[in-house]
Amino acid sequence: MKNKYRLLIKSTLVLISILSLVSCSNEGNLNDLNETIFVRHKNADMPAYIKGNASEKVFLITLHGGPGGFGLGFVGTAFSKIEENYGVVYFDQRGSGLSQGSYSNEDISLDLMVEDVLALVKVMKLKFGNDSRFFLLGHSWGGTLGTATLLKDQSDFSGWIEVDGANNPSGLYDQYIETFTSTANTQIALGNSLEFWEWVLTSVAEVDPVSNKDDFFKLNSMSFELEATLQKDNFLNNPDNGSESDGIIFQYNLLTAFWNLSQIQYILVDEQCLFQTLDFTNQLPEITVPSLFISGEYDMVVPAVSAQRAFDNIGSDIKELRIFERSGHSPIASEPERFAEEVLRFMNENK
């Protein structure tokens, strides 16, 4: 009897929460949104920061990198321009940013994080109406999560934008070896940073040709050094996040955020070894929503070949591939004007 009573109270509170949410759905100015909602799903509370112009009820849901990144890490020059036209949802994934919940192999999984994204869509529909339309954007690890989400249920999405996305994490090992070697040889031929690129060739020659966790982490760590050197030698633009991104770091409790990051990376990367096992290539034909793939030509973290292969295999009739010639792993920051133009054009054509 006591359990039934508690269940009744819980159900009533949930109903009250939903009614309160719906009753507020038409309040406020949809032309200039700046609010935070929380998605409570299976032992986790995850914030979603909604900004921009949602007058058409068109929203861009963003999936940050990591795992363990920051939803608000996207805020800056490029997304400020996107916000002028559409609502943007910056989502702190399970085990990321200011989200809270339990941490164990049972509490965190890719499948569960996919359910979180789909739960976010349901909450957005409750708040803004069933006529709301959604685009999904994933960067880096967000490309992994976004691909898995669409393979689970793509019915609510008008389009998919993958930015330097890891849709084949298990293939990164071979891509690192190939890309690092070819890039080093090219830079040596040009006479750039010779000592560094000779070190790269030596380091690549020392790794096991068969994928393993230790050498994967070594190569992944090296990828950021490669991009830093390419930027120094003027192959990449300096990042330009604009003044809009100033102060974003102060919106997070860094102790919570970095603890989250360490926990989720340990579970997904170390314990579950997702980056050694996941490969969505053969399933990509199942994704049929309009798709835009963006990659930096000098992306060393998720080499551009990943975007090319995703473009080749996606099942969408409407698909585009854009390679940013002055970018590495973050065209969002290195070529923000072009990035915003490409995303806005794609959304305008497919909303």
Rank of each mutant, 00 (worst) to 15 (best):
V200G: 05
G328Q: 12
P290V: 12
I264S: 00
L226S: 07
Q251S: 12
I177C: 14
S140D: 10
S295V: 06
G171P: 07
D270V: 05
F135M: 00
E286W: 10
P336W: 11
M46Q: 15
I318F: 10
L344A: 07
L19A: 10
I287T: 01
Y176L: 05
N43A: 13
A333F: 15
F38A: 13
G142R: 00
I16P: 02
I108D: 04
D214V: 15
Q283W: 09
A119E: 11
S316L: 04
N212R: 13
T288Q: 05
L151K: 08
L230Y: 08
M124K: 03
D299E: 11
K232G: 08
L145M: 05
P209K: 05
G95H: 02
F224I: 09
M300V: 07
L136N: 03
S330V: 13
I37D: 06
G328T: 15
Q93H: 10
F38N: 15
A310G: 08
G65E: 00
I18L: 13
R309P: 01
E206F: 09
K125R: 13
Q263R: 11
L236C: 03
L8W: 06
I318R: 06
S80L: 02
D240Q: 09
L150K: 02
E342R: 08
S330K: 09
H139L: 03
Q272F: 02
M347C: 04
G315Q: 03
I294M: 08
G68Q: 00
F196T: 10
F235P: 00
K42W: 15
A205S: 10
N212S: 12
I248G: 07
